[in-house]
Design a binder for these strands. Structure first.
Length: 951
RNA sequence: GCUGGGAUACCCGAGCGGUCAAAGGGGCCGGACUUAAGCUCCGGUGGCAAGGCCUUCGUGGGUUCAAAUCCCACUCCCAGCACCA
């Protein structure tokens, strides 16, 4: 066996660990590179999605080390969270034990893949030496006034027995378990993320996130500019504050709508004939399921509340409604309804027969009295204003004038509204960071003093299957505490923190993860975090959760002076989905479990076909990394995953491609092995191989530097091998050259398939480990491209000869055995050179070509004239579909022509090779005119394109 | 509905004005090697009367001497948001 995959991989993993090659320390003499993957929740074994994530990161970390960067590449675990708690319940254990068991298991899987982590920086967020800093930072937030405890309607998930942040509710369902969330009024802890709305939004313009992530964050923050306007109520002391982005439509208001949950509703209609209807509507809205709500929203519904609001400018009185389409949490929960210029209001007005008024026209010249058949939502000049000074104004100007008028009346002002709310931080769960607060009957809610930290989670808790709620509530040692202010008995806060808090700063902790005095040292962290993490890789599912929280957190830490940078992530790469074949019914548009392969659809009985769907446990289409490693080794799995698709693209699992990639690895091994056993025979092709190596290296570095891993792999694992094959085929057999080539090749192999590369690095007798090798700067030699072009020419000749031979064979009864090649006559070559020269001077061939040609001395020969003319045209103008050859030649082609390459001599020197490649007995090669014009092919001979005839 | 990203040969995918019948990979077909299979290597893989011609890069229009590539409209797919005032 040339290469024992399994043993070799394990061997080198041990060697790397022994030599501590991946440990990183500050080194100001090198540029730093902080490479990071979103750390995993340790749920047992590593799955393919992890493999993809970490293989991308590892290849980049290894590549940057090769480039001489000081690379920080740590790994740790996001180990607080519900699943550990649930697992603990199942086995009557403690989440702490479950967590550490899982960490050991997933870490082993990661180590088997050969990832080059600096394990010294290991951290688990559920360990007290991590979460104690969560608490200290929390106290700092509190001091800075960013912590707030308040009673508010919050999202509650019954399954998870806890509240959820807005970001964690998707389509009204819990992001973790999928159960529909309900609204509850509860007193909860918030972090004032809204203080940073503007910066979080504006900074997006300056960071290199993928466009879709930016868009998602922009949508989530949802800033809109507009006005708050107060409407007085007739015969009532309260007023209604509405938010609108369209103050320019103020005169079109024909009613005001409150969300049914709005507190004013009750105030307005209590003890009136309208109360019952409102209560019904409110009930209906509160209990609506997601499905019903979507159906219902098509049908706008509302009830009159019995009172009238007064338009602050026109003083007109309009009815007040409660409407199911008004969202209570956005703006003020109340809208001024302008049916003429808002489609929702239009629909509502139609249904309840309310007046629709036009107060804008699209163009100055439009008729202000023209009836509206749907809302006109664009901008345009104001019309029909009941007060002077507004008609004719439009857009921003109109808005500003209206806002000014409102200010004068003291009933409104310009304002900005955000969709982003404060971060609801508290969870009613056990397995999270305890919120370091104490409830004292006399002193109120007060923070745990810094010197009493950490507040530790008790280990003496037994979890049982039928348990509900948070076991901390029942743990008297934990709960009972003396008040740090007055010394009386008090109760400890039992809510814990959202786990997104843990992941909002772990990347800074990595920089200094063994610090037991503070979360991290500023100087050290500034070094690694300068300009943000250089490459951050993870799933798109965190686009508005983790990635937004972490940005927010970083900005606070910056403002508190703990760190200098305000944006944590430099380049972000969101890896694509990993798909795998799945039974699919195209009629029902449903994926089925893999058990249904080759069966028919259980719903419609159609034959099921196959399509690629996201790997998931429920579909059973997952592939176990462990199994694949056992069969093929880590290198092959890594190659498959990195060559299958670029990092951002989705990729399909394919057993046959994986197998093919394994064969590719075998071929590479064999090729290198053959190279190391070569004789020392010099040949013409030697230089070509080294030129090719340099060319490939340069291209490879360019691709890899830009995270173009797929393109990089194409060069390192495919082009390099086929170039090697070509070298051998051309008779290359020079150990010295082979060694040079392999020494250049192995580093290129190492980011993606590090084990095999390391193994052969040693067989090459190189000093030290390839894993810590720094690639010297690659410079192409001056004549590289010429050498490559020459070989390219030869290949081109062989290619077209093959084509023509096929043709000839079809027209011949006997086996073709001879070839006559006539290379371009000298005058055509000279003409071509002339044309290339002219083209470089931007000569206008169309306009001046013919005259120029006539001025050439060669044109004087009558017998040639027609052919010269044709040649000239073919070189410069071309035909309808093809441009002149001078425009289609590559730079290298031009170089060959300019250098006066003697094509005949060159081909003759490769005569043996041509005979072999073309399977011929004889071949004669000469320049046009120096031998018989066989089959009249002289006239088709062009520079770099000889005439050929077979017999 | 809005926002963002897509649609390229049997499949996956690169290309993003002329060097494009379109890189690379898979699959398939043929050849060499082998007792044979596998492996490996080489070649082919839109059509045809074949150093050429014709048709093709979601559909229909347009700009251009020239379009997979630029512009317009449409269809479909994926993702996110969604009565956000």
């Amino acid at each position: 066996m040339i290469y024992d995959v399994q043993n070799s991989e394990l061997h080198w993993q041990k060697e790397w660990a022994k030599a501590k090659v991946f440990d990183s320390e500050i080194d100001l003499s090198k540029p730093k590179f902080y490479c990071l993957e979103m750390f995993p929740y340790p749920s047992g074994n590593m799955h393919m999605g992890h493999v993809r994530n970490y293989s991308i990161g590892d290849s980049m970390a290894r590549f940057q080390r090769l480039m001489g960067k000081n690379v920080l590449y740590p790994m740790g675990y996001d180990s607080f969270g519900m699943p550990a708690e649930n697992a603990a319940k199942k086995e009557n254990g403690h989440p702490h034990h479950v967590t550490h068991r899982n960490i050991a298991s997933i870490r082993q899987d990661q180590e088997r893949m050969g990832y080059s982590y600096d394990w010294n920086r290991f951290l688990a967020t559920s360990d007290v030496n991590y979460y104690r800093w969560n608490q200290e930072i929390f106290l700092m937030f509190n001091e800075r006034g960013l912590v707030e405890r308040r009673s508010a309607p919050v999202n509650w998930c019954n399954e998870c027995d806890t509240v959820l942040a807005n970001e964690q509710v998707k389509n009204n369902r819990c992001w973790r378990c999928g159960l529909e969330v309900i609204q509850k009024d509860m007193s909860q802890w918030f972090l004032k993320m809204s203080d940073y709305s503007d910066e979080l939004l504006d900074e997006l313009d300056n960071i290199t996130f993928p466009e879709n992530v930016k868009t998602m964050q922009r949508n989530w923050i949802g800033r809109s500019h507009g006005a708050n306007i107060d409407f007085m109520i007739r015969d009532h002391q309260s007023k209604i504050g509405v938010f609108t982005t369209r103050p320019d439509t103020i005169f079109g208001v024909t009613f005001v709508t409150l969300s049914p949950e709005h507190p004013l509703c009750e105030e307005l209609c209590k003890n009136t004939e309208w109360e019952l209807d409102w209560r019904k509507l409110k009930e209906e809205c509160l209990k609506m399921s997601e499905f019903e709500r979507i159906n219902m929203l098509k049908d706008k519904k509302g009830v009159f509340l019995g009172k009238y609001a007064i338009n602050p400018l026109s003083k007109e009185e309009v009815p007040i409604y409660a409407g199911n389409f008004v969202v209570s949490s956005y703006g003020t929960g109340a809208v001024m309804a302008v049916p003429g210029h808002d489609q929702r209001d239009y629909d509502f007005a139609k249904k309840y027969n309310l007046p629709i008024r036009r107060v804008l026209v699209a163009k100055e010249s439009d008729n202000p009295e023209e009836l509206l058949t749907s809302a006109f939502e664009g901008y345009g000049p104001m019309v029909n204003s009941p007060i002077d000074g507004f008609d004719g104004l439009s857009g921003e100007e109109a808005k500003n004038v209206v806002i000014e008028a409102l200010k004068k009346e003291q009933s409104g002002e310009g304002t900005t509204q955000y969709r982003l709310k404060d971060w609801l931080l508290s969870r009613q769960r056990f397995w999270g960071t305890p919120i370091p607060m104490i409830h004292c009957d006399s002193c109120g809610v007060i923070p745990v003093p810094k010197e009493s930290l950490p507040v530790e989670l008790p280990l003496d808790v037994v979890f049982t299957e039928d348990q509900r709620g948070n076991p901390l509530d029942q743990h008297s040692d934990f709960v009972n505490v003396t008040c740090p202010d007055c010394g009386k008995m008090a109760r400890r806060e039992t809510d814990t923190m959202d786990t997104f808090y843990d992941s909002s700063w772990y990347f800074m902790r990595y920089c200094d993860s063994n610090n037991d005095q503070s979360p991290f040292d500023k100087e050290i962290t500034d070094y690694w975090m300068e300009g943000g993490i250089d490459l951050y890789i993870g799933g798109i599912e965190h686009a508005v959760m983790h990635l937004l929280y972490a940005r927010f957190f970083t900005k606070i830490l910056r403002d508190a002076g703990l760190i200098s940078t305000g944006e944590p992530f430099g380049r972000l790469v969101c890896q694509g989905m990993l798909n795998s074949p799945t039974p699919f019914c195209s009629r029902c548009n449903i994926d089925y479990h893999v058990d249904y392969f080759d069966k028919s659809c259980p719903t419609c009985n159609d034959k099921l076909n196959s399509r690629s769907s996201k790997m998931s446990k429920s579909l059973g289409n997952t592939v176990s990394p462990g199994d694949m490693i056992e069969i093929y080794g880590a290198d092959t799995v890594r190659l498959f995953i990195l060559f299958g698709a670029n990092p951002e693209a989705g990729m399909d699992w394919s057993d046959s491609v994986l197998e093919a990639n394994n064969r590719q690895m075998n071929s590479i091994v064999e090729a290198i092995n053959n190279g190391l056993n070569m004789k020392k025979v010099e040949s013409k092709i030697d230089n070509w191989l080294l030129s090719k190596l340099r060319k490939n290296q340069v291209l490879w570095i360019k691709s890899m530097s830009n995270v173009g891993i797929r393109e990089g792999v194409m060069l390192s694992h495919f082009s390099m091998l086929s170039d090697w094959s070509w070298y051998c085929r051309r008779g290359g057999n020079n150990y010295t050259i082979a060694k040079l080539f392999i020494k250049g090749w192995l580093p290129m192999l190492s980011p993606v398939t590090p084990h095999v590369a390391e193994e052969f690095w040693h067989r090459l007798n190189e000093d030290g480990l390839l894993a810590s090798y720094v690639l010297p700067e690659i410079t192409e030699h001056e004549d590289d491209s010429y050498i490559l072009a020459q070989e390219e020419y030869l290949r081109g000749v062989i290619d077209s000869a093959r084509n023509v031979k096929g043709l000839a064979q079809r027209h011949s009864n006997q086996k073709i055995t001879t070839l006559t090649i006539q290379t371009s006559p000298e005058w055509k070559r000279n003409l071509a050179k002339e044309v290339i020269k002219l083209q470089k001077e931007n000569f206008n061939f169309k306009k001046e070509g013919t005259n120029y040609l006539k001025s050439l001395s060669i044109f004087g020969k009558d017998e040639f004239r027609a052919e010269i003319f044709q040649t000239w045209n073919s070189l410069t103008i071309g035909s309808k579909k093809k441009r002149g050859r001078v425009f289609t030649w590559s730079n290298n082609d031009k170089k060959l022509i300019e250098s006066s390459l003697n094509e005949s001599e060159f081909l003759k020197s490769n005569q043996e090779f041509l005979l072999k490649e073309l399977d011929l007995k004889s071949i004669s090669i000469y320049s046009v005119g120096e031998g018989e014009d066989v089959a009249g092919k002289a006239k088709v001979a062009f520079p770099l394109d000889p005439g050929m005839s077979f017999a």
